[in-house]
């Protein structure tokens, strides 16, 4: 593909998908700078490998696969701060009460999850891939995806509910500092 044509197609991909990719990246990495880097890495690789994209309709899942690749590679180089897999709760049948939580609280809870749990969970909540597609992308059995989603969701529910008191307290004390 000639360079102007290539650049034109990349520009179209960027225009159509950069916001989604940035948002997913942000939730995966938990930081603006890392999300920008991940988004940029994804489009640079897409640019480089564009000849492999045969159908424009599959561009989104193709880009998400590139993003996933870079995410796991970047994370494997970085020090892991997430909790070990086996410390995550087993799914329980307890009743989860709706609670008040905000974007920051959600991100903190996400950051605690191992990447293998965080990735399917983020894509699930973005409604971008079905659990079957996630399984294909991660090349893991369906049952594993289901279990990771369930345990990841359970973790979010518990974490966000556990912090309810703190958040409520902040709401009614508007002059206090949010610094925690």
């Amino acid at each position: 593909m000639e360079s102007p044509e290539l650049q034109q197609r990349v520009a179209e991909l960027i225009g159509q998908h950069y916001e989604l990719l940035y948002r997913v990246s942000f939730r995966l990495t938990g930081s603006t700078a890392d999300a920008e880097d991940l988004t940029q890495q994804t489009f640079l690789t897409a640019h480089q490998k564009l000849h492999q994209l045969r159908e424009l309709e599959s561009a989104k899942s193709w880009l998400l696969a590139i993003l996933r690749h870079h995410f796991f590679r970047n994370r494997s180089r970085a020090a892991r701060q997430s909790v070990p897999l086996d410390s995550l709760p087993e799914p329980s049948d307890s009743i989860d009460e709706p609670t008040v939580f905000d974007s920051e609280e959600l991100q903190l809870a996400l950051n605690e999850l191992p990447e293998e749990f965080r990735f399917p969970l983020v894509l699930y909540y973005f409604h971008e891939l079905s659990y079957q597609e996630i399984a294909t992308q991660l090349d893991i059995p369906l049952g594993t995806v289901m279990s990771r989603l369930s345990r990841g969701k359970q973790h979010l529910r518990r974490r966000l509910i556990a912090e309810e008191t703190t958040i409520q307290a902040l709401i009614i004390t508007p002059t206090s500092s949010l610094t925690r």
């Binding site: 899942s61 193709w62 696969a65």
Partner: peptide
Amino acid sequence: DLPVNGKPL
């Protein structure tokens, strides 16, 4: 190769 149509990367 990068994945196309959801094939693993």
